[in-house]
Design a protein around this nucleic acid. Structure first.
Lengths: 219, 219
DNA sequence: GATTTATGAATGAAGG
DNA sequence: CCTTCATTCATAAATC
């Protein structure tokens, strides 16, 4: 399952690179390269996200119920479950030699960053560090570096979307006689799937509002 | 804050026709009307979905742990949710396409690399990119990364042939006897323990700034 | 087609 | 600040 996003988000794997599905909008000289999706694809996407949101909500709901019970039963479990370090990829939890922000920390940092106060002063750094410490190990240096990197990379980010467009001659297969496998992959060939919305019997995806607080950074 | 997802994703029912982000492609009469997204929006979306997937996965995991306990306590809750479905719902959705050099490009890159000029300057990168573009999609970032990786791995190759070893290197991080460079090693592994029931924060390796907070106050 | 490997990309930290 | 390096993560490609 979950083939859909592989198709859509991974986008045209047909040849090596991005922007095959892109178009230039804005007319003028500095056109903006963007991805395009059909309404249908959009709808699918929306529904999938919706489903996810619903599932999460339900699960959380359930969690509440259960923990409530547990409290009543006086058998509160510790953190035997859901080890925060157990990230997605079953990566070994061996000691991490470099600081990695926890989601909470990241969230906070990101928020502060977005507030625009471009230059976190020494003092500010201290404050931030103090706050973040409540959500995991962190040092002022970490915070400092984070802002440093965040800014630098944020800046470099916008100059990226203007490269390549001269893919007139694709010669991917010039060297390799037998091309691995041509990925036919037709976009609108998908009519079902997506998370298998049909398999999920959560009906009205009334996405809660707090579930998807997309807090995006500018630029 | 982009209002894109607010428009498109947040609320559902209503048929797809409210596109202000849409463009007409296909030229001819009856061109196809589609939605457009910038790379960044695309990335954001990808991340959000990924986050949802991860959260679901973790919640399910947690649920299992809890119900297991509950079984022990003989106080199994009903099927508050659709259990079976979730068992297989855990999948990673992230799907970032990645550039793959064409054989020709690789050849050229390799040649340049061998010429020794270890540090392709910004300008050089541009030139190289321009040249490689003739042989397929590629961006400066790709070139930059390639050299970065090439050098790093080329370097590691010769210092790591770490011989004798009882092959049980998993577990703890045993630093290689011969360090290529002393590592300051100011480890600060965060352990965000005590994740009780107040809030559930999942460590998701790659989520950006967007929502990753499942607020689950247990009453 | 599941697992392993190779490698592009992301990011914390250091240097200047 | 900006650039560079080291390490890690994710995934295309290779292998079994």
């Amino acid at each position: 399952m979950m083939e859909w996003e592989a198709q859509e988000l991974q986008q045209q794997p047909q040849h090596h690179n991005q922007n095959q599905n892109g178009v230039v909008v804005g007319g003028g000289s500095g056109g903006l390269y963007v991805k395009v999706m059909t309404d249908e694809q959009m709808e699918l996407l929306r529904r999938q996200i919706s489903v996810y949101a619903t599932i999460c909500e339900q699960l959380v709901e359930m969690h509440k119920a259960i923990t409530a019970q547990q409290d009543l039963a006086g058998m509160r479990l510790g953190n035997i479950y859901c080890d925060p370090l157990m990230a997605s990829a079953g990566h070994k939890i061996s000691s991490r030699q470099r600081w990695t922000p926890t989601p909470v920390q990241l969230q906070i940092l990101e928020r502060i960053f977005d507030q625009g106060n471009g230059t976190p002063s020494k003092q500010k750094i201290k404050e931030i560090t103090t706050e973040l410490t409540q959500h995991g190990q962190i040092s002022e240096t970490n915070v400092y570096n984070w802002f440093q990197n965040r800014r630098a990379r944020s800046k470099r980010k916008q100059s990226v979307p203007l490269p390549n467009n001269a893919d007139s001659e694709v010669e991917t297969d010039v060297e390799s006689p037998k091309e691995k496998k041509t990925k036919p992959d037709n976009i609108q060939s998908h009519e079902n799937s997506a998370l298998g919305t049909e398999n999920i019997y959560f009906q009205s995806p009334e996405m809660g509002s707090e579930m998807h607080c997309l807090d995006t950074q500018p630029n």
